[in-house]
């Protein structure tokens, strides 16, 4: 499938999105290189989640470009065909704030149904699902139902479910915001582990120490624009913009 040698898995250029008269994304541009982890931080309502939702086609952007591996999914505000978008969809995975596991499916089925529906080999999918379950530290939970799991365990199942589709890039939309503080650690740990394995990821998060430790790049968004971005040490320790400083001060406690 690698027809392009473009180093960026995802490129976004001049992305625009409004809800009615409210402009949520104003001319957003960013690119994500293979193997990188990018954290997006910023106050609520800054458009971070909307950005991820546009990148995963859950929201329809009003203008700009979205490219996966150099191929246009959105060009100048016009989307590619349905069939093409479906192909792009196999390239990314998305982990939601509130997990969105399928409650009527066991852990194993939650993880394995999507690849099976894509016509993959049954045994192969099963092996992959079981190894993902082990990797997420959920051995013995194969047949459990989501309601029998803690929030942290549910989110790890959701991560395994996304990974089972073997995405090239994984999006996290505030993956620990719905968790009790003592459970955020176990989820951040598996994301960190994925980062060490060079999984390409974009993480919208409020966990500043995590963003600082794991990301190659931090993007600070406010009011629908990217205010500042750079290496985590630069952004966190030496922010240039007043808006960034103001935001980060809240976390200095």
């Amino acid at each position: 499938m690698d027809t392009s040698n473009s180093p960026s898995i995802l490129s976004i250029r001049g992305l625009q999105k409004s809800f009615g008269s409210l402009s949520v994304l104003k001319d957003i541009s960013l690119s994500v290189e293979r193997g990188n982890v990018i954290s997006i931080i910023g106050p609520s309502g800054s458009g971070k989640s909307t950005l991820l939702r546009c990148a995963s086609f859950l929201e329809q952007a009003d203008g700009g470009d979205i490219l996966y591996d150099g191929q246009y999914a959105l060009r100048d505000g016009v989307y590619a065909s349905k069939a093409e978008l479906n192909r792009f969809r196999t390239r990314f995975g998305l982990v939601f704030q509130n997990f969105q596991l399928f409650p009527h499916y066991s852990v194993l089925k939650n993880i394995s149904e999507a690849p099976l529906l894509h016509g993959e080999d049954k045994e192969e999918v099963r092996e992959r699902a079981l190894s993902l379950i082990r990797k997420m530290g959920l051995e013995g939970k194969e047949d459990a139902y989501p309601y029998q799991l803690s929030g942290g365990q549910q989110q790890r199942v959701a991560i395994a479910r996304a990974l089972a589709m073997r995405p090239e890039i994984l999006y996290f939309d505030e993956p620990t915001s719905a968790l009790d503080p003592e459970l955020t650690g176990e989820v951040l740990k598996v994301i960190r582990q994925l980062a060490e394995e060079k999984m390409t990821m974009v993480v919208v998060t409020h966990e500043m120490p995590f963003a600082r430790a794991v990301s190659n790049r931090v993007i600070f968004m406010a009011g629908g624009v990217i205010v500042e971005q750079g290496h985590p040490l630069e952004v966190f320790d030496n922010p240039q913009e007043e808006r960034t400083k103001q935001f980060l001060r809240v976390f200095e406690r």
Partner: peptide, 14 residues
């Protein structure tokens, strides 16, 4: 049924 269930399925290619 929450809209998130539809979205989760959509992203997974259902």
């Amino acid at each position: 049924i929450s809209i998130g269930q539809y979205e989760a399925a959509e992203v997974l290619g259902y």
